[in-house]
Amino acid sequence: MYRHKYRFIVPFLTPAIILYGVFVLWPYSQSFYIALTQWRGVSAHKKFVGLSNFDKLLHDRFFWNALKHNGLLLIALPIVTICIALLFAALFTQGGRGVPGANAYRVIFFFPQVMSAVAISVLWQFVYHPNLGLLNGLLRTTGAGNLARTWLGDPRTALWAVAAVIIWQAVGFYMVLFIAGVQSIPTTFYEAAIIDGATRWSAFWRITLPLLWDNLQTALVFIGIGALDLFIFVQIMTNGGPDRSSDVVARYMYDTAFDKSEFGYATAIGVALLFLTLTLSIFTLRVTRRERIEF
């Protein structure tokens, strides 16, 4: 039906392929080689050192320190984010139209998702500010002033203060994801359950949750990948401090590359991060694999 189709296909496809090849595929593929070299970026010559960057990585306590924080967030972020988002999704869809005010709440909750992570981080720096911050001010006016502290400046709270902001920002997205999932479940299932005398609670556990499994899986993978990054939030709010107590691998890598100019080693950290991300995604998909329920 189409005539001379290649005269059309070639000019239409080539610009995208060239741009993508040059600025995306080429750097990605190069990084696997740079990770095997020692290179300070000054000369064009990269000294090939084999796997020694990875050996160094295994004994780098700063790397392990940062990775430990990623690991902690990898456990905390999915649990908290998914629970809250699931609760909201259930409330906003229950009975077909959700609780009173569902639409207004939904618009508000999703809003942080579209905002720049930089703006959010700068704003929350002030919410956490020890003297003029919103949080300590609130604690003091409600008589809980002894709880007030330098949230981002205290090694015991810095990481979790950052984590709270990430959850605050992410809940809206997963809420919308789950709402879309719940709405694709036929209402006849719930009607049948009601006739059989099911409570709201058991309908949620027996119908909603099992049929939402695909979305939960997606959410887990997404939050997991996110928990291995977190660069912007950490860099702006604490820059990994105090005393590396909120450092994450992505920030450590950025630092290694663009502050210390150890480009080979930094790229090795990047490759390690890639393998962690891929392993984690595959692992999550395997562990949560279930027989698909067709409906």
Partner: peptide, 10 residues
């Protein structure tokens, strides 16, 4: 699927 981080240096 790839993190942008990996491409940053090259």
């Amino acid at each position: 699927m790839f993190p942008v981080f990996l491409a940053l240096v090259p």
